[in-house]
Design a binder for these strands. Structure first.
Length: 1032
RNA sequence: GCCUCGGUGGCGGAAUUGGUAGACGCGCUGGACUCAAAAUCCAGUGAUGGCAACAUCAUGAGAGUUCGAGUCUCUCCCGAGGCACCA
């Protein structure tokens, strides 16, 4: 009498809740960070969770990485699987602005929701070690990282172009620019140059490239990185400009085509254009073109479907150093200033873009590479080389690959690679050029004029800049008093002290007769001070002293930096001279008048100063506030203030601040000391940008104004925040060390757990994030913090889940919410369906019918498990068990989850066919096997099954079963018989059949005979254990 | 425009170094169970022709290499991801 098991109801909600709780209670997935014997760091890319929550595509990635991690755990590794989130960045900031909520509260809500959603899927996270980049205890160390880079010369500032919205008065990210227009207000976006912070990633270009040779990453991702770094070997060649000392430097990867260079093209920004002004005959036209080209946005240039524009520089020629022939020089915007030398030699016969421009402008095309032997081509082509050559000679096409040199003087006949070497040698020998390596990779701009990021830990200090300045370079100050004045009156003594506090030498002479001013005697008194001034010096003249300063400048043999004319006595006085006479009764007004009206030579003054400032008060009773109008100065700034009178106060802070601001333009970038980290992001209700190209933090006085950590003087904080890519470039270092507050990562921990054993993440990050984190790791190694230079031993890029063939997005309304699916079918079904949906590397398309089908399977699996009673007579062939263990294991290990699920299904089908036949031992074996092979994908069901088998501890504390190799090999194989490549028969034969036997058996095959008989057998091909192919 | 990866039944997708195309699943069709439906179970299922055995055609399009091509080469077309017209 056979017994029948009663099948319990599959209540996934109860089961999943039960095991998730138990895992956390028992700390099943919290490896001992110190004592773990076989550490395995299973990392998945942490996300950028939006307030809208995770979609099924996120779960696809996380659960995939988790399935792999669980398998490793079953294989006996101490798997560390952490999770966290990247909370900083523009996405969150924009979203917060959109919904009118503060970014901080949005972020906190997102985080809560994110972790809640994530728990539902049942991943084996170590919840005791989460990392959130926007929390001060994390970004403290991001700032620390910046300081490390800073101190070691891997950080610098330079000007870079940003997208600027003239109406929002703010910097936009590329993604906020839609077809050249601002996302929010639709104004046309301009390019603006701003000083930005950069990480010197180019220093590691070579290492980033070389290491790709040995790291265990998929080839396509390596290729992508290689292309991004873009190393090209070539030469820099000098093309002298005819009749001048100037020479145009050109970088080329094809020095072998030098003889074919029939003209040159320079970028619109190239220095030659300004330098040669006098000799470019059509300068006006050129200037017009250049202006237009530089003004064109990159977007514009991209959309311009290869419409080559350009203009010739008439009147000047370059000399081709090989042919010695003069060739024309063009300006065109397809040549970029930022790459190579900003100039190219155009070889229209062998470069597509040059060919296009030559065609368009009717320039000479000279063929110097003969494609005669296209085995050398570097590109397989099936075209007739003779025909190609003819077409090149006719200028109908270009040929960009390898070949044999022609029209190249002594080099004729050389093969391209050989030619490159030879001509480079020749160039070096004749001092015409040099070997050169160029990279596409550019330094990493980490500045963001935004609020929601870690403040860059720098303080700008004027005083330190001044202290660092060599004494003879420090600005010296000459103060010239006015009519009836002396150096001890007005604000002169006070401002003298102020300057002296800054370490400046100040000259404030008393002029011999201030009551009877005379230009010549004043000049005699002042002249000795000219020698004492340097190029950074300033002159401050008050009232008639201003006029004196002007005459002094006329007589100077050197330049000063700035002159401040305070209430200057030029033009007409405010009152008539008659009234003046009454006002200054007892003084020599006639000599004052003479001095005041003394003729000025503005040309001479212009030669003696860089910058002039007129400081005027609107209520000055002596001088006309519009007097500056008679000044003919090149670089002049006018400041008209209210209520200052004739500037005779004994102290004038406004004046000091203005003069200081203009005088001390140098600021020292002082790193914030480590002990003062983190530089906290101040709470700001209004976190919109400030409007002058600075970030929102610039509005926060309390944040900006600090004491310099070095000298203690007032200083200002940097207001840029760093790129969120910086946060994510090192987060994996933090996970194993989250409990350390005094260091970013503990040395021992890091040594034990890093580099990361397996890293799984989206393909969209194959270039930037991966490259940045590799770079940071290399830098940290060189700074002595770690002893490895590659962060990830293995990387795998998963594909994208689409819905109806399109990326899931809220705007398209095709987002599938994982919470709903878990609620309806359970996490296990969702997990299993996501594994089955397609190749993990390719992604897949979500079908609601698909998850329904998978739910059927899960329930079938559940049912068959309980239906197996174990009181059958036993079956003979149990090889299915061994095969399943082997293949499912291997497939999971290689992340071929979809085929692993297929094998699982075959196993379950097999169980269903045989469920009443197994004997007791077999039943135990097949049930245990089932629990194990499903455990990585459907862990909750696996645990439940495992428990029913009488086990007291989690299945994940047990080992993946071993399989018997001998059981797997089939005795018989199917031998395929082909005739002329077509399958004609399939024969069952013993697996160790010999080649002769196989061949003869095939020839005798009845079905094959039909096609063989009467014809001559030409050849028989045998593939071991697979097929016999008979060729007629 | 450039770089990378793809394109296989009605659908999602399998296919070692070139060696049986379509594993596994969904869907569909027929059947069993049921008063009926759902669920479950059984069978069939690339297309065309044929009662059938079988034959022919089929892996985005077209060519090529090969005894043999989804797989390698070339030229196109379409889709996805990345981007900086990178000499």
């Amino acid at each position: 009498m056979k017994k029948t098991n009663s099948v319990p109801k599959y209540n996934f909600k109860t089961i999943e809740r039960k095991w998730q709780k138990r895992w956390e209670r028992d700390k099943t997935f919290q490896p001992d960070m110190v004592l773990a014997k076989k550490p395995f760091y299973n990392l998945m890319m942490f996300p950028y969770p939006s307030a809208e929550g995770l979609h099924v595509g996120n779960m696809y990635a996380f659960a995939g990485a988790d399935t792999f991690g669980r398998y490793k755990k079953l294989c006996g590794y101490d798997v560390f699987e952490p999770i966290g989130l990247d909370g900083f960045g523009i996405h969150s900031e924009n979203y917060a602005m959109k919904i009118g909520e503060h970014i901080r509260s949005v972020s906190e809500r997102s985080e809560k929701n994110f972790y809640k959603q994530l728990r539902g899927i049942g991943n084996m996270y170590d919840w005791s070690r989460t990392v959130e980049t926007y929390k001060p205890n994390y970004y403290k160390w991001t700032q620390w990282l910046f300081l490390q880079m800073f101190k070691n010369g891997l950080v610098y500032q330079k000007k870079a172009e940003v997208n600027w919205c003239p109406s929002c008065k703010t910097v936009l990210s590329d993604e906020q620019v839609i077809q050249g227009q601002c996302e929010r207000c639709d104004s046309f976006v301009e390019k603006k140059e701003l000083k930005q912070w950069f990480f010197r990633i180019t220093k590691y270009a070579d290492k980033l490239l070389k290491n790709l040779k040995w790291i265990d990453w998929p080839e396509d991702i390596k290729t992508n990185q290689r292309n991004w770094i873009g190393r090209s070997e070539g030469a820099i060649i000098n093309f002298p400009v005819k009749n001048s000392n100037y020479s145009l430097k050109v970088f080329t990867t094809r020095p072998d085509t030098l003889f074919g260079a029939t003209y040159m093209v320079i970028a619109p920004e190239h220095a030659l254009i300004e330098n040669r002004e006098s000799r470019i005959e059509n300068y006006g036209e050129v200037e017009k073109y250049v202006k237009k080209a530089i003004g064109r946005s990159e977007q514009d240039r991209k959309n311009d479907e290869r419409n080559k524009t350009g203009i010739e520089l008439k009147g000047i020629k370059a000399i081709n150093p090989a042919t010695k022939k003069p060739i024309p020089i063009w300006v065109a915007d397809y040549v970029l200033a930022g790459y190579g030398t900003g100039a190219i030699m155009a070889v229209p016969a062998h470069d597509q873009r040059d060919w296009e421009s030559a065609k368009k402008f009717g320039l000479e095309i000279k063929c110097v590479v003969n494609p005669e032997d296209y085995r050398l081509a570097g590109k397989n082509t099936q075209e007739d080389p003779q025909k190609i050559l003819e077409e090149i000679l006719k200028g109908e096409r270009c040929y960009e690959w390898r070949g044999k040199a022609m029209n190249s003087g002594q080099f004729d006949g050389l093969e391209t690679i050989e030619f490159k070497k030879e001509i480079t040698k020749w160039l070096v020998k004749n001092k015409l050029g040099k070997r050169s390596v160029d990279y596409k990779l550019r330094d990493w701009c980490i500045s963001r004029q935004r609020y929601w990021g870690p403040p860059i830990p720098i303080v700008w200090c004027q005083n330190c800049a001044l202290n660092k300045m060599p004494k003879n370079k420090k600005p010296k100050v000459l103060i010239i008093h006015g009519f009836e004045g002396s150096s001890s009156r007005n604000w002169f003594p006070w401002i003298k002290k102020e300057f002296e506090k800054m370490g400046c030498e100040v000259f404030a002479p008393d002029i011999s007769d201030s009551f009877h001013p005379n230009v010549e005697t004043w000049m005699e008194d002042l002249k000795p001070f000219i020698r004492k001034l340097n190029e950074n010096s300033i002159i401050i003249g008050h009232s008639l002293g201003s006029k004196a300063a002007m005459h002094l400048l006329e007589r100077m043999d050197r330049k000063v930096a700035k002159v401040f004319f305070v209430a200057s006595a030029i033009g007409n006085p405010k009152r008539s001279w008659k009234t003046m006479e009454k006002m200054f009764a007892g003084s020599d007004i006639r000599s004052l008048k003479k001095f005041w009206e003394y003729k000025i030579n503005w040309d001479k003054i212009n030669n003696s100063l860089d910058e002039a400032h007129f400081i005027i008060s609107s209520n000055d009773k002596l001088v006309d506030p519009k007097h500056y109008k008679i000044a003919k100065l090149n670089n002049v700034h006018i400041e008209t203030w209210k209520g200052q009178g004739h500037f005779t106060q004994s102290k004038n802070e406004m004046l000091r601040d203005y003069i200081f601001e203009k005088t001390f333009t140098n600021f020292e970038a002082v790193p914030v000391p480590e002990k003062d980290l983190p530089v906290k992001l101040p709470p700001m209700e209004d976190f919109l940008p400030e409007g002058r190209g600075k970030g929102p933090l610039a509005k926060n006085e309390e944040f900006v104004n600090v004491k310099c950590p070095v000298c203690g003087k007032p200083a200002k904080r940097e207001t840029d925040v760093s790129d969120p890519f910086v946060d994510s470039s090192w987060y994996f270092f933090r996970y194993p060390s989250t409990e350390f507050d005094d260091q970013p990562f503990d040395k021992k921990r890091t040594k034990k757990w890093l580099p990361v054993d397996s890293y799984i993440g989206g393909k969209e990050h194959t270039v930037l994030h991966l490259l940045y984190s590799r770079f940071i790791t290399m830098a940290l190694k060189d700074l002595g913090h770690i002893d490895f230079e590659e962060p990830y031993k293995r990387f795998f890029g998963h594909g994208l889940i689409t819905k109806d063939g399109a990326k899931m997005s809220k705007s398209k309304g095709n987002v599938v919410n994982p919470d709903d699916m878990i609620d309806k079918y359970g996490a296990d079904t969702l997990r299993l369906y996501l594994r089955f949906i397609g190749d993990f590397g390719q992604g897949g398309d979500w079908r609601n019918s698909g998850i329904r089908g998978m739910n059927k399977f899960v329930r079938r699996m559940w049912t068959v498990f309980f239906a197996i009673t174990g009181d059958g007579d036993g079956i003979k062939n149990m090889s299915m068990v061994d095969k399943t263990i082997k293949i499912v294991g291997e497939d999971i290990d290689s992340l071929s989850f979809n085929t692993a699920v297929a094998r699982l299904m075959e196993y379950v089908n097999w169980l269903r066919e045989n469920n009443s036949l197994f004997d007791e031992a077999q039943a135990k074996k097949v049930k245990e096997t089932l629990s194990f092979v499903i455990a990585p994908m459907t862990p909750h069901i696996a645990e439940e099954m495992w428990e029913t088998l009488g086990n007291k501890t989690s299945i994940f504390t047990h080992r993946w079963p071993k399989y018997d190799k001998n059981n797997i090999i089939d005795e018989e194989i199917e031998l395929v018989v082909q005739v002329n490549g077509k399958v004609r028969d399939k024969l069952k034969v013993s697996r160790d059949i010999s080649e002769e036997e196989a061949k003869s058996i095939a020839l005798e095959s009845e079905k094959a005979q039909k096609y063989i008989s009467g014809k001559k057998v030409k050849r028989i091909i045998y593939v071991q254990g697979k097929l016999v192919s008979i060729v007629m």
